[in-house]
Computed example of a mutant assay.
Amino acid sequence: MKKLSLMAVMAAFTSFTVSCTPEAPSGASGVYTDLHLILNEGPFGSGSASITAYSEDTLIQNAFSVENGFPLGNVAQHMIESDSMLYVAINNSNTIHGINRNTLKHSWSSTIEQPRYLASEGNRLFVSNWKDSSIYVLDKTNGSLVDSIDMGHYTEQLTIFSNKLFAGVGTYEGPWTLAEIDLGTFDVKHHAIGDVPNSFAVIGNELFILCSGDENFGTGDDTPGSIWKYEGYSNGATEVAAPSNNSKHGIGFSTDGTDAYFLNASYDGAIVKWNPGQNWPTSTLTLPGGYNLNFHNGKLYFFDAKDYASSGEVRTYSTTGSLIETIPAGVIPRQVIY
């Protein structure tokens, strides 16, 4: 897999990480109902992922460990909320956790090797992974394995759109496709797509896909990022925006329903704004430094992993790039549940 040089640097950083004593939360069990929850990957290769819970006047680091007496595991990849539960994919520990959203109490764990991203539909939890060519289907109530869908290659980001499951197929090595999966039959159709599809955004009831491009960090030739629009089962996807050179990339596609926002680099990117009908954006809203990007309720959540070994932070910005708030987080913050 590519990006080995970057991973080696990150692993070296983690050898200097010092563990922190969790802060005890105040208030009755259920205090987390109204708190935002930041998912922190944790040190790469050692240590544990964590959850930071916060509001305007509350900050609880290592909240999951505080409530359960054991850590999440090594390298948190993705977290979703559904039916008062959180579902968390822990990549290096080969684990999916089911967690009560209101109390952060652990409910169940399931073993899936190298899980990546999650999507939920009805009573089913879909899990992409880097171990084999399947998307696994779990029962959301207890984590038991219900079924699997053969994809022909490793899978990444997932989303439910128009009553179908969509998946980015291919990791840092192609071939890359956009997979469209019937939720009733699990029939799969692959559509041509740009290199390294990494995130989805629904804008005006239409599905758009951001591809980062193949980035080799000086070890080989890059390919450019691109934005694609899903045109339907028969027509597949078409490219609607691309940069002028191969050095431009993008991750963290997010939207307010009208405009899209993303980071203009795979690591340490700045926020850019894009609207359907425009070409690849060249002006930035913020300084670089972002590891991932989310959008919620008029705010852009910018995840700054700092040195990938010590505590990071989450900065919220307006859609014009004005700084609103800075929230202390754990090691490598990557996502927030609102």
Rank of each mutant, 00 (worst) to 15 (best):
P224I: 03
L104Y: 08
S311W: 04
N246Y: 14
H36K: 14
P243G: 03
T95Q: 10
I327N: 06
Y32N: 10
K2T: 15
M79E: 06
H36S: 15
E325G: 06
S26V: 15
S84D: 14
G312N: 07
D83N: 14
D195F: 03
S19P: 10
F302G: 00
G170W: 03
W274F: 02
D222P: 03
I90F: 07
G220P: 04
N198C: 15
E113D: 06
A63E: 07
F302V: 00
A24N: 12
Y230W: 07
Y233R: 11
S133I: 09
V31T: 12
F302A: 00
N74M: 11
G152V: 06
T111P: 01
G174Y: 02
A260D: 04
N235P: 12
G298F: 01
F186Y: 15
A179V: 07
Y32K: 09
K3W: 15
D57P: 06
S310I: 08
E156L: 12
F303C: 00
A63I: 08
N216R: 12
L158C: 02
A329Y: 04
F262L: 11
W274H: 05
L4N: 13
V18A: 13
G312A: 08
D83A: 14
T33R: 14
A76R: 07
W280H: 03
F126G: 05
I112D: 00
S82Q: 09
G170M: 02
V9M: 13
S48R: 01
T258F: 00
W228L: 00
G312S: 09
D147G: 05
H249K: 09
Q335C: 05
V188A: 08
R124Y: 11
I324V: 10
R124V: 03
D195K: 09
I135V: 14
D132I: 02
A265L: 05
I193M: 01
L263P: 10
T223F: 09
W176S: 08
G236L: 08
I203K: 01
K306E: 15
V146M: 11
T103P: 04
A53C: 10
D259V: 13
